[in-house]
Design a protein around this nucleic acid. Structure first.
Length: 692
DNA sequence: CCGGAGATTG
């Protein structure tokens, strides 16, 4: 008795804490105050826990649920009064709604004889959390028990979860078995099951079967049609999806969202936006679709702009999904102020740091140069998955903290999290940035041999980079020739970079030839050849080479840099004059050039391009995007303020040298993140120690 | 006492 009283006391304080946030969530007349209060007055303190659970499960926190459960265990109601299965179904569903699947499973496991409702509850919980293997395991168990006397037997509700799990796993054999069981049990005319089957066959990549099942349905609802639209998008047939979309009668918000997402996945952001603008009404998810459509297609500025519009024009509050997309955009742009604002928003709204949100937040901090904050978020998270650890490891790698990145890796292994291909990219790049050649090779072998991860081109590229930057060009070339996959331009490009650094002209020419075989329009090779000829005095050949590049209309990723000032992200392209303050920016650059020349800096001395297939140097040297961004930062922030710039490509040697000098001249810290890492310029030096 | 379709991270 004493225990129960103590629990209720505790409950009181935790409930009153959250009570202050209730008015915004629940309309006043629906406030659960009188019927659900655990302890609003002394007389209600010992309210029946059974009634409480049955009526108010949705309003309780996880802690309160656990307290209720403890009360029930300490002081169980008579079995004749209430079926334990009924309570279990409530507890299972409520725990899962609060993200606690483990506890839901625990409750289920303690049930002496689960009925079909309990089985369905536990199946649904696991299917909804994408724990498909578990779902199917429970289902197999259920099938075993249904054979025994008194065991529960699957019903029509069972199959929605099971089919979803088969679809998620792309387990075609299991899916077909489940399908025949549906037929055997006579459930095939259930609309929910039919819709699930259509969805499943689309996910199996068999749209024709899905379509046939759809055609055979005697009754279809809007979900059936939406499933068809989604399914065709999934199979890459966005035109087929559009035909269905145009043909269907009543459309729901989901129909529009599905179609927009379909266009976005194919990279047609314009078509996506047209549909978004044409929607008759929108909810948060509709905005989320479009915000993520921009983010997925690297239109981060547009993504953020739409995020603002959603609040100002749409009058909607972002939810966790919104924030995850926007945080990703912030991470790419280095938009730290907005990122911090979102962090505050999360805290203000007391939002739970779930895996997605925590990972996105930690990544934002890491990519905005705040590795300590990234780590703090990581530490704060209740659970961590392979993405969380990869964010941390890659973040440390980007900052040049190779040792800590490797520590993180072993820590991750100790926590029983299996690394994947992205994790190893973080590890390998950590080694590359610190010149840890032999360890890098060790981790590459570990990846393939111990973890059986098939290396992607990026991994090969990283290893070649690792060897080449350290000057081990023979090994790098041997490594390329020993690759099981045909090397591509990126891989050869890594070796070419090494040839440039170590001025290995003969090997360089050989490599350039291999590259031009693969890609006759490869601009980096032309730049390299031109520089090579210039170096060896063959100026005519050099000029000819550049001309050839122009004739071929070589298209390169344009160099682009971003800087955030007063909550606004400003974007600069190479030689950009479109910024409203362009005049001031360019006079700042002229002033900087003058000061740098005084300090002995001569951009024309360096003919060696560091970056291979990236930005062309030429006359645009002084107007590379990162210089524009830094110049803008200098004129628009106060003395001594740190300048933070993000660039989409690798910084070239000349800009790197220039940044070092600029940091000295203006006495500012400049933090530049390029495609592969952070450069922290201070007092004329860079944190990368000129090795990157 | 229960189910299906859309939006999220490295």
């Amino acid at each position: 008795m004493g225990t129960v009283a103590a629990l209720t006391e505790e409950t009181e304080s935790s409930y009153s804490k959250s009570a202050s946030s209730l008015p915004s969530l629940v309309p006043a007349h629906r406030k659960p105050a009188s019927s659900c209060s655990l302890a609003l007055g002394p007389r209600r303190r010992h309210r029946d826990p059974v009634a409480l659970l049955l009526q108010c499960a949705a309003q309780l926190t996880m802690k309160q649920l656990l307290q209720l459960q403890a009360a029930l265990l300490t002081n169980p109601p008579p079995a004749s009064a209430v079926d334990p299965n009924v309570l279990a179904v409530k507890l299972i569903g409520a725990s899962a709604d609060r993200g606690n699947v483990r506890h839901a499973a625990l409750v289920f496991s303690r049930l002496p004889s689960p009925n079909v409702f309990a089985w369905n509850a536990v199946l649904k919980v696991h299917a909804q959390h994408n724990l498909w293997v578990h779902t199917l395991r429970y289902f197999e168990q259920l099938l075993l028990e249904s054979g025994a006397a008194g065991g529960a037997a699957p019903d029509e509700y069972t199959f929605t979860s099971v089919l979803k799990a088969c679809a998620g796993l792309v387990a075609a054999d299991g899916g077909e078995k489940a399908h025949s069981l549906v037929l055997k049990l006579g459930f095939q005319s259930n609309l929910f099951i039919q819709n699930s089957l259509v969805d499943m066959y689309f996910k199996f990549g068999r749209p024709w079967i899905a379509r046939r099942l759809f055609e055979e349905m005697s009754v279809r609802d809007v979900v059936s049609w939406n499933t068809l639209v989604t399914g065709y998008c999934l199979c890459g047939d966005v035109h087929g999806a559009r035909q269905v979309f145009d043909r269907m009668g009543e459309k729901s918000l989901i129909s529009w969202s599905a179609m927009i997402a379909g266009y976005a996945r194919l990279g047609d952001v314009r078509a996506a936006r047209e549909l978004f603008d044409a929607m008759p009404e929108r909810n948060v998810a509709s905005w989320n679709v479009m915000i993520s459509a921009y983010a997925q297609n690297e239109k981060f500025m547009e993504s953020i702009q739409l995020f603002r519009q959603m609040q100002q024009v749409g009058g909607l509050l972002p939810n966790d999904v919104t924030l995850v997309s926007v945080l990703s955009a912030c991470a790419h742009l280095g938009a730290l102020d907005l990122g911090r604002w979102i962090d505050m928003f999360i805290k203000r709204k007391k939002m739970e740091l779930n895996l997605f949100l925590g990972n996105a937040l930690a990544d934002m901090y890491a990519k905005c140069g705040c590795i300590a904050e990234a780590r703090a978020v990581f530490d704060e998270m209740a659970e961590r998955d392979v993405v969380s650890w990869t964010v941390l490891i890659s973040g440390l790698a980007m900052h040049g903290h190779a040792d800590e990145a490797l520590d993180g890796f072993y820590n991750m292994l100790e926590h029983g999290i299996k690394p994947n291909d992205v994790t190893f990219m973080g590890i390998l790049s950590a080694c590359t940035h610190s010149g840890l050649v032999d360890p890098g090779m060790k981790y590459f072998r570990m990846m393939t041999e111990e973890f059986k991860i098939v290396p992607k081109v990026e991994h090969y590229g990283c290893v070649v980079d690792l060897l080449s930057r350290a000057g081990r060009l023979d090994e790098a070339e041997d490594f390329i020739n020993s690759m099981r996959v045909a090397p591509n331009v990126i891989v050869w490009g890594g070796l070419l970079g090494g040839c440039q650094i170590y001025k290995d002209i003969i090997r360089g020419e050989r490599v350039v030839q291999r590259i031009l075989e693969l890609d006759p329009e490869h601009s980096g090779s032309y730049v390299y050849l031109a520089n090579l000829y210039a170096l060896t005095g063959r100026l005519e050949d050099s000029a000819h080479c550049r001309l050839r590049m122009r004739h071929n209309k070589v298209v390169k990723t344009p160099g682009c840099s971003w800087i955030e000032v007063d909550n606004m992200v400003h974007e600069f392209f190479m030689g950009d004059r479109t910024h409203p303050q362009s005049d001031k920016i360019y006079s700042m650059i002229r002033w900087l050039s003058y000061r740098m020349k005084l300090a002995g800096y001569n951009p024309n001395v360096s003919l060696v391009t560091h970056c291979v297939d990236e930005e062309e140097k030429e006359d645009a040297l002084s107007t590379h995007s990162e210089k524009l961004a830094v110049a803008f930062g200098l004129i628009s922030t106060g003395e001594g303020t740190t300048i933070r710039v993000v660039k989409n490509l690798r910084v070239c040697n000349d800009c790197h040298d220039a940044m070092k000098l600029i940091s000295q001249i203006v006495e500012r810290e400049i933090i530049l993140r390029d495609r592969s890492r952070f450069h922290h310029f201070k007092d004329g030096l860079c944190s990368c120690k000129d090795y990157w």
